[in-house]
Design a protein around this nucleic acid. Structure first.
Lengths: 342, 342
DNA sequence: CTGAAAGCGCTTACAG
DNA sequence: CTGAAAGCGCTTACAG
């Protein structure tokens, strides 16, 4: 049992043990230059024996090819952190970075002080590019990063500034598509259970709903706002039914709310889809397990993550100065809750 | 409108602009040495004008006082990632690190290749200490970190190796405490809805249940395994009631399952707590909203996070070689579902 | 309080 | 293919 040395082994020591120069040893680990097999083997053996681990942190910035990308996510405990969208987005980002051999580094600031520290940290050269998932336009972060020349891409279009790169899904098109589908199925009195007032995604969906209804010359005032969860969807549906009995379709801004609405309908004796068609949003696991299974709008969230990663890596490698934007369209996942009537 | 320079400003440039040496300028930013007010102001003004951002990444390792701590969390999309425990744990860790001015850096490897890359990254000097939240004893990670002299603390006791530092909550005590509470309330035929077979936390709770029942000379074979969610709790309760009608209390390994069980009981005409007492686990938001409100076992998860952070920072600063373990006891959150009878 | 010099660990033209 | 030298940005004894 040898004692484990507490002081790390340096490249210098490895080079000396292998009988080569520091330069040659360095080349073995960076791997991008020709080294003789003999030298390589000597270095690798020495490294293994000494337990050398490259101390990459101090690589000079000149050398800093893209090695890690920072991703700023909402604080744990916020609603967004728990939403199923975040894992899907991170999965897409992670897969793409992984394929390029880049380390994904997550940050989740909880307080203004955290944000401030994070600004310094990110600008301090610890990452080569940044993806911003958090919705509030985090203070000085973007401009600070720009001053440092660190490429930044937003997830979701930030309000205000247009001078940024972002990737977003098209919630407006999502709302329109869902509504048009209901209209095509012959529905005429269509209600919408929207998300919380003031939330961007919810507003966009609502506008899409209104646009589709307007185009078909249908009334678009059957709208209730709710909190995305099942219970509030149920309550919203009860309120809608209280206001008019002739509703023959509902578009809800989340699958959870749609499930709650479906429950409320069935409790009150309405058949789905025979009397009332129901379509949700997000195509979450819930949609497939309702009775009947529920149609839903599927946003390509994983694709959004992948495109964000691809975009920021491309900005990092070309050092291009411009800004790029990308908006991904929705798909319909059709199930029994909207198709066929009676 | 000036063009923003793409090449970052160095400390050297700031020092020259301020008319001081690099040494003095450095001291202004590291802040731990006396500098004359005159010099400090000159440096700060120059830094502001040039848009200087310290490039901390290349600080030499000798100087590397603890500045950031890496936290390895389960992959997004895994059940653990979505569980409410993770945000609570991260909140505790984040608060404590934040109070010490340390940057929390999260990692969420999704594949074996990711884990491998992460090993190199963490060992490469990018963080000064590591917290491991992921349950699988991640391969070579711990030993690699040890070789680098990077302090590591596990969240939850890892199976096998005892030679590590960890902080854990006491699920065994949690199970025992919940059961003893039911016994003290005069209950005698007590069932347990356990978590998935093979899961450590669930096994520990089950043993705590058995121990308490054994000590009171009560039968402890009324056990069903379920999947932690509401529906499976409901089904488990129905199965338990089918096996014996005399059950007068239930201890479930999660609040969700307890809520499902309560529902099943009420559907079958049993009053809670009059006929059957129900206690859950985790004291999640669900517990307060059931009808009647539900007693539950509260694990001090935020405290666990705080203690993990405190412990790893202490290991980092003392450079002590030993391992430390800490186990935090549960508390009871008592509500109407278990207290009073009829 | 201040600065010239040596140093951290690593990389990269440059010359062989 | 290889190495001595200069360099990255920053820090820290040491001497004043």
């Amino acid at each position: 049992m040898e004692a484990v040395s507490r002081t790390p082994v340096s490249l210098d020591q490895v080079a000396r043990a292998a009988g080569v120069s520091r330069t040659t040893a360095s080349r073995v680990f960076s791997g991008n230059q020709a080294v003789s097999d003999l030298a390589r083997q000597a270095v690798e053996r020495a490294a293994a024996e000494l337990g050398y681990v490259p101390y990459n942190a101090t690589r000079s910035p000149a050398a800093s090819r893209s090695e890690s990308v920072g991703v700023v996510v909402p604080e744990p405990g916020s609603r967004l952190f728990l939403e199923p969208l975040l894992p899907r987005l991170l999965r897409g980002i992670g897969e793409e970075l992984s394929a390029s051999g880049i380390q994904m580094v997550l940050f989740s600031p909880q307080s203004p002080a955290d944000v401030h520290r994070l600004e310094h940290y990110l600008a301090g050269g610890h990452v080569d590019a940044v993806l911003l998932l958090t919705l509030h336009e985090s203070d000085a972060l973007p401009s600070r990063l720009q001053a440092r020349g660190i490429p930044t891409v937003f997830g979701g279009r930030p309000r205000g500034s247009i001078e940024v790169s972002f990737v977003d899904v098209d919630n407006h098109a999502g709302g329109r598509t869902a509504t048009e589908h209901l209209i095509e199925q012959g529905r005429r009195v269509i209600a919408h259970i929207s998300g919380p007032r003031g939330l961007h995604a919810a507003t966009d969906q609502l506008q899409g709903f209104r646009e589709a209804m307007w185009n078909a010359a249908l009334r678009s005032d059957l709208v209730e706002h709710a909190a995305f969860d099942r219970d509030s969807g149920e309550i919203a549906m009860e309120r809608l039914l209280a206001s008019t009995h002739r509703i023959d379709a509902v578009f809800a801004a989340s699958d959870e709310m749609a499930a709650g609405a479906m429950w409320a309908l069935q409790v009150l004796g309405r058949r789905v889809p025979d009397d009332v068609a129901v379509i949700g949003f997000d195509d979450s696991p819930v949609a497939a397990t309702t009775q009947p299974p529920m149609s839903s709008v599927r946003q390509p969230i994983e694709d959004m993550g992948r495109e964000m990663a691809r975009l920021v890596l491309s900005l990092a490698s070309t050092r291009a100065d411009g800004h790029r934007q990308m908006i991904l369209g929705p798909e319909l996942a059709l199930r029994a809750s909207t198709i066929g009537r009676g």
